[in-house]
């Protein structure tokens, strides 16, 4: 399996064997078990369980809110990455470090504090609720939580690309007479776009599976503010394992599909490289 002529280092058999064993036991076998449970179920039966009216409403909310949240992050994440890489301002290092906060903060805590902020008595809710904007216990709350969860992805994907962006290219555009806006629209924008879309897809994929933060802030009303992962939990509590698995499999396929899309995007992003 490994070519000895090119490597004299020891330990390949041991580490590889352990890696495969552990991966198999902790991840692969359990996941395989999930699919195996569906073996006895006909496709029609699976489809019926995966597409009940309540499930479809849940998918619609999950994907819709994830899409909106990822879009918000694509727009503002690009501005944040640009500002952090290009400009100097007081507190820059603090904000840069803060961007990773959603990665580090347990999702339950995120959900708790966000629902408190947007509730009628919260710091933001007391201004927003009188305006008719209910951030907590509605589907808008789902968008807020998912925006928080996905915030680092676009920023952190875009930052290294912006840092390594060849400054000479912008200068070349300037020597040819292009102003800043023109340079951004015809050169910087098109170059960054694939990376922004990659960040978007990562945030989107993360949002689809999110559970902890959302159940705190969404009202979790069926057909209205109930996300797909929550429906899995509800099916389990009803001892309807197959129903839970059906919805889980739909989510898994979408996640894997997104993984493929992200890989293709990364290849597309590097199409102008050697």
């Amino acid at each position: 399996m490994v070519d000895r002529r090119f490597n004299v280092l020891p330990g390949f058999g041991l580490t590889m064997g352990y890696t495969l064993l552990y991966l198999g036991l902790i991840v692969l076998l359990p996941v395989a078990g999930l699919f195996l449970r569906l073996a006895g179920v006909s496709f029609e039966e699976f489809w019926r369980m995966a597409t009940t009216e309540r499930a479809v409403a849940a998918y619609r909310l999950t994907f819709g809110a994830s899409f909106v949240a990822a879009t918000i992050n694509a727009v503002f994440g690009t501005v944040v990455a640009w500002v952090l890489v290009r400009y100097h301002f007081p507190g820059k290092r603090f904000f840069d470090a803060l961007v990773d906060f959603p990665f580090a903060l347990p999702t339950a805590v995120a959900g708790l504090t966000l629902s408190n902020l947007y509730a009628e008595t919260g710091w933001l809710g007391r201004f927003l609720v009188p305006l008719g904007i209910h951030g907590a216990f509605t589907s808008l709350g789902v968008v807020i939580a998912l925006t928080f969860i996905g915030l680092p992805f676009v920023v952190r994907t875009l930052q290294p690309v912006l840092e390594h962006f060849d400054h000479e290219v912008e200068e070349a555009a300037a020597t040819l007479g292009a102003g800043r806006l023109r340079t951004f629209v015809s050169i910087i924008g098109p170059t960054l776009l694939p990376t922004i879309i990659t960040g978007f897809a990562l945030a989107f994929a993360r949002a689809i599976g999110e559970y902890g933060s959302v159940i705190f802030i969404a009202g979790n009303k069926p057909y209205e503010s109930e996300i797909a992962p929550l429906l899995i939990v509800i099916r389990l509590e009803e001892y309807d394992y197959t129903g839970a698995i059906a919805i889980a499999v739909v989510l898994l396929f979408i996640s894997f599909g997104l993984l493929v899309v992200i890989n293709l995007l990364e290849r597309w992003a590097s199409r102008y490289e050697n």
Binding site: L23, L28, G33, G212, P229, V233, Y241, A248, L252, S255
Partner: peptide, 22 residues
């Protein structure tokens, strides 16, 4: 192999729990 190692990142935590329920 690298993709498989990263797999848990792309699986919803709820599904991760479900897997052990099953």
């Amino acid at each position: 192999l690298i993709t498989l190692i990263d797999l848990p990142f792309s699986i919803s935590p709820v599904v991760a729990g479900l897997v052990f329920m099953v």
